[in-house]
């Protein structure tokens, strides 16, 4: 296969998803190319998170497949994951670690270990200056979300971001920061998928998929 120049595209082919008894969605197709943003909308329980989890390979679709650069991601495995940032519903923050330690672990797991200086810079960018060495236990819900999202500031090199409700629990200033990060990333030619209830300025220009509750 080999990697061609530019960002490979993410393709969903005839995706079906059934959770337990409930059919969430069926026959879903989309292609996400370099520099594009895909916004997934829909009511609670319509399968937004399931679609994101399928797109990053955590969940196996009932039918169909997701392709990265033309290859099924379930075969690519680490090769795909090395190019992916997924920020899920859960923040993946440990209460007993400091914000900086949490971010360090997240980056190392993703395969891009960072220096303390870079980590401090990323946290500052998300408005967490002074919180670097506080245990996450004492941080507020919004600050924890920011810590999780600070990873984005260190992931310029990852061509695909998948974000589940990135703006949840954030205040207006932080929403602004994260939007800037996303816009910058898109302008670098990367692709972003996100779910949000917020009609933000970047999401206005996005491709949209709205899932219906059946």
């Amino acid at each position: 296969m080999g990697k061609k120049a530019g960002t490979p595209s993410l393709e969903a082919v005839d995706l079906h998803c059934t959770r337990g008894e409930r059919k969430l969605f069926g026959a879903l197709n989309f292609t996400l190319r370099s520099g594009e943003l895909l916004r997934i909308g829909g009511a609670n329980g319509s399968g937004k998170t399931s679609l994101l989890r399928i797109a990053c390979g955590l969940l196996e679709p009932t039918r169909g497949e997701v392709r990265w650069a033309g290859e099924n991601i379930r075969r690519l495995q680490e090769e795909f994951w090395r190019q992916l940032v997924y920020v899920g519903h859960a923040n993946a923050i440990k209460d007993d670690l400091t914000a900086a330690e949490n971010l360090h672990v997240a980056c190392t797991l993703a395969g891009v270990p960072r220096q303390p200086a870079q980590i401090g810079e990323a946290l500052r960018r998300l408005g967490l200056a002074g919180c670097e060495n506080l245990p996450a236990r004492v941080l507020s819900q919004g600050q924890r979300r920011r810590t999780a999202l600070a990873r984005l500031a260190l992931s310029e090199a990852m061509p695909l971001w998948i974000l589940d409700e990135p703006f949840a629990a954030l205040d207006a200033a932080a929403v602004e920061h994260v939007q800037d990060l996303i816009a910058e990333h898109l302008s670098r030619g990367a692709a972003v998928i996100l779910t949000t209830h917020l009609e933000a300025k970047i999401t206005a220009a996005a491709l949209r998929i709205d899932l219906e509750t059946s």
Binding site: L58, E78, G88, H89, I93, A106, L109, G111
Partner: peptide, 16 residues
């Protein structure tokens, strides 16, 4: 605990 707070997902999607 890794399962509960989402760290496990990050390990599943890790580069390692």
């Amino acid at each position: 605990s890794d399962h509960a707070d989402g760290t496990l997902e990050q390990m599943l999607l890790g580069a390692t």
